[in-house]
Amino acid sequence: MTKVLLKDIRKRFGTVEVIRGVDLEIEDGEFVVFVGPSGCGKSTLLRLISGLEHISEGELSIGGRIVNEVPAAKRGVAMVFQSYALYPHLTVRDNMGFGLKVRKVPAGERARRVSEAASTLKLEPLLDRFPRQLSGGQRQRVAIGRAIVGNPDVFLFDEPLSNLDAELRVHMRSEIAALHQRLSTTMIYVTHDQIEAMTLADKIVVLREGKIEQVGTPRVLYKSPGTIFVAQFIGSPKMNILPLADGQPISHGASVPATAVSVGIRPEHLSLVQPSAETLRGKVRLAEYTGAVTLIHVELDGGQTCLVIHNQGTMPEISAEVGLKAAPEHLHFFDKEGCAV
């Protein structure tokens, strides 16, 4: 059982509090993704769990044991770094076996575990090369291999794909997902890329300014975001948020809560129609054709720009008058604190 439990975790650098009270429960075998804009504290939180940073306040337990004062290497966690952090003076084999060597695992056992991990990750032909002789994707795989070899209770990933090009990123993403299925070990994964978060996670933790904004499955976060921040962070392109007054026509037929001050509609839920009293009205300003869909920027009469994903054959002309409408169940209402109502 390797549950990871965070109780009111705080971290201060000098007088600046970067993690401001995080409570979180991570189940055994769960794939949890920390996501948020840069500076939200997601990497710091991961480093607190890994033991690379010291926890200022609160309690962290891994597998039922409080580990605040347990050194990183003895927490039963392994980390895959953003820069891969492969030792440049060691071969792939020695890189992977380094941790075992430090822990005085006998050579035979070490070789066995390294070759096991190497075969899992198809690294055998690379074992005697040095990191500088590898491509980015290969280095990434070695970094993962190094983590696997230690047989950790929890894997930690710190933006592991951000140094790869787009195509490789998609590929490695699926490899990591497959790895999780095979090992079913607890994994904690940090990224600023919400698509990575959505595709990989059992549970997403959205962080904002050192606090948890919302925790939930990808589906829950998409369907019922708790706040405007989450609503706009999850999903791409981001959700349109309109003042309730401007959004009045579209809310027709929906039950609008009394405390609501704004309404949110995802671009993919809007459709272009003839302008009428029951639609939003505006002018097309820009149409970005991407092949499968076209992203249309509509300037509403109120002045805001509203994004619409349009996948019909007919293309509206620039500065044409259009109407926008959406099904009532796709509307999100937020109060003046930005919380969903």
Partner: peptide, 14 residues
């Protein structure tokens, strides 16, 4: 020197 290299070493038990 890249900091992450040392952190990797630390995680490896050094």
């Amino acid at each position: 020197l890249p900091r992450e290299l040392e952190e990797a070493g630390k995680m490896d038990g050094l």
